[in-house]
Write a protein that binds this DNA or RNA. Structure first.
Lengths: 353, 353
DNA sequence: TTGTATGCGTTATCAT
DNA sequence: ATGATAACGCATACAA
């Protein structure tokens, strides 16, 4: 692996940064225009409450001076920050970036800014982030999953902050919830495999977060209902990756050569398993069937395309945003505390079943 | 694609959320302890400046009351937010999540919180986000790339905010910069293909952001230097995806059946191209060689593993954090405005060359 | 339509 | 080691 040289340098003394000029504030504009700060504030934030000429003069002056509002001051005074924090387990998992996409547009449309925190699948880190964002005065919190530390729950309760819990079925949410039944999804995919005639169906799981455990439960109950063995179970708490999928496949085949299908608890694992099959010239699905979970874009392009459970993560984000907005904009009856929604899922059979 | 039912419900009128109790502030603790707010503030933030007993009494009381500091007020008063914003083009691109990983730990260790904004590869959106975060008083800004709107640059200059520009070589940065020479990287990979004996080397690119264009330039100059044709060029501004890689490969092979190698401007495209080759029973690299860019985890697991340019995005994040911290903590001589670093790259030859 | 007065919760500056 | 006072920049209630 050839490596290419790194370099570093510092440019000749550039014209040093202009000394941090004093911030332009409402008062500056007011002074320049011979009016009071209130008028300026109104001209900018409640334009209808001010005369047309005033409004224009203020705007022009603000632009000229390069005025930039100080939102900390604004939030402090008003008690509302227009900030909503989304806490996700992982940034690199496409599932969460799509959840984020679903949330962002509707929130932005109403003037809310979405903050992202990533917990690394740790409840402690989640607690830390909740504390951080609450102390920055977020108006709302969007969490993943249903398990949170006791202290996190207390802090949230005390703050009175709106909360939507995402991704799982959650019949008694902290506040509101949108998700899908991960257990049912795991069961449905397993049943689909059984329907296709597979009998020795293994399960491969990594990370073992809350949702993976629910999927695993679904796999178990489907097998149990069909009177099939639940012995072919390979789990690890290591982070999921494509490479890990290849490794786990190798290990499972060695331990249980009789396997005729493997349900991988996410698409990365499934892809890795598929690649390993290609390396070993094991035909998928003729020799062994594979399925993943989430239905990421990639699963539709592999050779063959991977079966997967398609989860509506983008819709989940969109609904979470809607609930949050309804709550925040006072439409409180539409979204009482305790409200939850199950957005379902669908099966993509691909070519690997 | 079977679909599974969605459900929604609202639970029976739960014991309604306790009415947002008044926030616990420094003043509450002070009153309870018969001291002033200043003392309480000091006990919590500059423990050494207060007597041992006082410190303990304050801490205990704060805990008892469930005190949570209001950082908006703190920032407003102190002029520093301990907030640093990272603006990335895309959340779903693993390159940026790894950049983020590199940044986060060192910043968190010094008490800074990292904000993430995603621009969708749009300069306008970047400008909007810069405005937003500056108005929230961030102490630092980490940007991707070297092209920013005029207004964005003005706002940054006026704010006096510290800036690190990431990912590209940048010899005259706004403030500081860390990256790699994308042109050189594109050229090096192309040269590696030439060295392997390939003569008709195509390039496949999507999204066409700043860095992709630089890689393309590298490809061109390598071909030019070797006296090879630059005709086999297929670009689209559509977002990159694995599926798109498959489609573009199909189109390129139809147009130029003589191609013996394709340099894909990122790993997703390369993976899609590889899968399409598998579908068509085109041997890689015997019939056609493939290479990607970035060296994502996945490239090491495909069959065969993909050649790729490995970029040190995590290190870039770490260096960016170090520069930012040095600047913010007053160690200003170590990181004068104009400072830049090239962290280099390496080639992973995989099995697809 | 505009202005006055006050408060948001904290930190900074000087004192004591 | 602790306190008094004054910012920080803006929004809100109420008044004119």
């Amino acid at each position: 692996m050839p490596s290419f040289p790194a370099a570093r340098a510092t440019m000749p003394p550039l014209p040093s940064k202009s000394p941090r000029l004093k911030r332009v504030t409402l008062a500056d504009i007011a002074a320049r225009l011979g009016v009071t700060k209130v008028t300026v504030s109104r001209a900018l934030n409640q334009p209808e409450k001010v005369s047309d000429v005033m409004r224009e003069r203020v705007r022009e002056c603000a632009h000229e001076l390069g005025y930039m509002p100080n939102r900390q001051a604004g939030s402090l005074a008003s008690g509302r920050s227009q900030l909503i924090a989304l806490l996700i387990p992982s940034l690199s998992n496409a599932v969460f970036s799509e959840l984020h996409r679903g949330l962002e547009a509707p929130l932005a449309a109403r003037g809310y800014q979405l903050l992202i925190g990533h917990t690394g699948y740790s409840m402690e880190e989640e607690e830390r982030l909740i504390e951080t964002w609450l102390s920055f005065g977020v108006d709302g919190l969007v969490l993943c999953g249903s398990r949170h530390s006791k202290r996190a729950i207390e802090m949230i309760a005390r703050s009175g902050c709106a909360v939507v819990e995402c991704m799982e079925k959650r019949e008694a949410p902290l506040d509101m919830a949108v998700g899908l039944d991960q257990h049912a999804a795991g069961r449905a995919m397993t049943e689909a495999m059984i329907t296709r005639g597979h009998q020795r169906i293994g399960l491969m799981a990594a990370r073992m977060d809350q949702r993976v455990e629910q999927r695993l439960g679904g796999w178990q109950s489907a097998l149990e209902a069909a009177g099939l063995t639940q012995d072919y179970l390979m789990t690890t708490t290591a982070p999921s990756s494509v490479q890990l999928g290849s490794e786990l496949l190798a290990e499972m085949l060695q331990r249980w050569p009789e396997l005729d299908a493997i349900f991988c608890c996410n698409d990365d694992l499934a892809a890795g398993a598929l690649f390993e099959c290609q390396r070993r010239h094991i035909a998928v699905p003729a020799d062994i069937a594979l399925a993943g979970f989430n239905g990421l874009e990639m699963t539709r392009s592999t050779c063959p395309p991977l079966a997967s459970v398609v989860t509506p993560r983008r819709d989940i984000g969109a609904r979470a945003a809607a609930l949050m907005l309804a709550r925040l904009e006072g439409d409180t009856d539409a979204t009482p505390s305790g409200h939850w929604e199950d957005l379902g899922f669908s099966l993509q059979t691909g070519g690997s079943l």
